[in-house]
Design a protein around this nucleic acid. Structure first.
Ligand SMILES: NC(=O)c1ccc[n+]([C@@H]2O[C@H](COP(=O)([O-])OP(=O)(O)OC[C@H]3O[C@@H](n4cnc5c(N)ncnc54)[C@H](O)[C@@H]3O)[C@@H](O)[C@H]2O)c1
Ligand SMILES: NC(=O)c1ccc[n+]([C@@H]2O[C@H](COP(=O)([O-])OP(=O)(O)OC[C@H]3O[C@@H](n4cnc5c(N)ncnc54)[C@H](O)[C@@H]3O)[C@@H](O)[C@H]2O)c1
Lengths: 214, 214
DNA sequence: GAAAAATCGAGAATTTTTTAACAATATTTT
DNA sequence: AAAATATTGTTAAAAAATTCTCGATTTTTC
């Protein structure tokens, strides 16, 4: 499937956006799209879009454009959205519950199988078919069930030790919401959602704009 | 304060990370740090750290390093974390409530002043001193109160119209959690938190690693 | 107190990413 | 059916980001 070269992270982060727009187009019955039109929608340059896609193979047709449904499927396959993923969430507080409650990852087949917490008041409750379990039972659970992705929603004070426990039990993909960089072995991929950093960037640009408009 | 050139977004996104590590160092009593040590902690190269900081002025001392507390303050000033910000949240569902409940933006002075929702069951409730108000009262509220940042936590179907309403009422900074790109005039800064895209990237790298380890 | 080591800041070199150019190919028009 | 138009894929050029190098300066060692 495509070329063997290393694909830059910037490319990978643009793919989900293409995928989303293609999904919207598909939904409203558009079945052909050019890189130029996609550029107008996404804000990325047409050239960049073509370049990005050609990292993985030629999905378009010269003189014509791209078939919306086909391109969407191809990008989905590249990202792995054609497969099913089982997820657990560790830390069933504000963020952990919000994610468990979320039904909008529909585009792909993600299933939150269980949550884990150490707070006895939460243990035993359910969120959309997923039970909140005692975090003491985490290791036993992971021995029995195959889980693809673990979401860390604990306080930052314990996120590193939780991550290490997860990795010991075979987890290789972590979605980390705690504001700390996990130190992990190479074979584990960590995707951080650092909301503080996002808000701080926003703050910088907010102030910059205010200054400029003075 | 520093030079007039345009600073790249990549630099701005690294500053909050430096700021966080410096805060941690400060807390444990370290008061001197070299770009080399900061490199070991953050994973960014020492050269890049020095280059980044020199966009804003020379905060270090040759042969010595950087004063932790001083550098942290300087980065804080660059980001604008020395000022106070009033925030409202539109959409008091899962994510909106999670953010309102969050006390971890402590590093700077952010205050969630109010939430807005159209669900009568939510209107009137309070989250940490912030009242959930009727979204019909949003415009009146914004006329009276000065708000710096609006957080959009509504379903994506209404996020564009909500954003337009906010901008009409003078909002210039939006933190958007809805999975859609807002079309906004130039003078409005939008910081997107697109969790779907983050999860899709994670999925790509998870699959890539699995393939490589086969 | 002189020599050695550490370190920043600045500019140069390198690498990576993005944009532009254009030949090849498909569609549409006349 | 020929000409005009549209559009991709690919290669080249340009721009941007990162890393390297090194002189200047401070601290540490002997
Ligand atoms: N809520 C937000 O808006 C927000 C924003 C930015 C970052 N974060 C980060 O996300 C994480 C979660 O935030 P939150 O607001 O949901 O916090 P929270 O306090 O609501 O939830 C944390 C949960 O983790 C549980 N927990 C603690 N130790 C545990 C352990 N060892 N094993 C399993 N569970 C454990 C707690 O019982 C609690 O239920 C934190 O690291 C926070 O800094 C949250
Ligand atoms: N929860 C998650 O984990 C998650 C993940 C990714 C993206 N998101 C996005 O974040 C947004 C919020 O998600 P959520 O899970 O909190 O949803 P939610 O349904 O829990 O909350 C949405 C809230 O918005 C309110 N609302 C609807 N229309 C409104 C309007 N016109 N004005 C004011 N309020 C209005 C609803 O009454 C509801 O309380 C959505 O766009 C969702 O796609 C959420």
């Amino acid at each position: 499937m495509g070329k063997n070269e290393k694909i830059s992270p910037a490319v990978i982060r643009r793919l989900p956006k293409y995928y989303r727009y293609l999904g919207e187009l598909s939904k409203v019955g558009v079945n052909k799209i050019s890189s130029r039109e996609l550029s107008d929608m996404t804000g990325f340059s047409a050239s960049q879009i073509r370049q990005d896609l050609n990292n993985f193979g030629g999905f378009g047709q010269q003189g014509f454009g791209y078939d919306v449904e086909n391109l969407r499927n191809e990008i989905g396959k590249i990202l792995g959205l054609d497969k099913k993923y089982k997820i657990i969430i560790v830390g069933a507080g504000n963020i952990g519950q919000a994610i468990a409650n979320y039904t909008g990852f529909y585009e792909a087949d993600y299933e939150v199988v269980a949550l884990f917490d150490k707070n006895p008041k939460l243990i035993g409750l359910s969120i959309r078919n997923a039970l909140i379990m005692d975090s003491d039972d985490l290791e036993d659970f992971l021995e029995k069930e195959h889980i693809d992705i673990a979401v860390i929603c604990t306080p930052k004070s314990v996120c590193q030790q939780v991550a290490e426990q997860l990795v010991r039990c075979g987890i290789r993909a972590i979605w980390n919401f705690a504001p700390k960089d996990l130190k992990m072995p190479e074979e584990v991929y960590v995707e951080n959602v650092h909301l503080n950093e996002s808000l701080f960037s926003l703050t910088y640009y907010y102030n910059k704009m205010k200054k400029e408009s003075e």
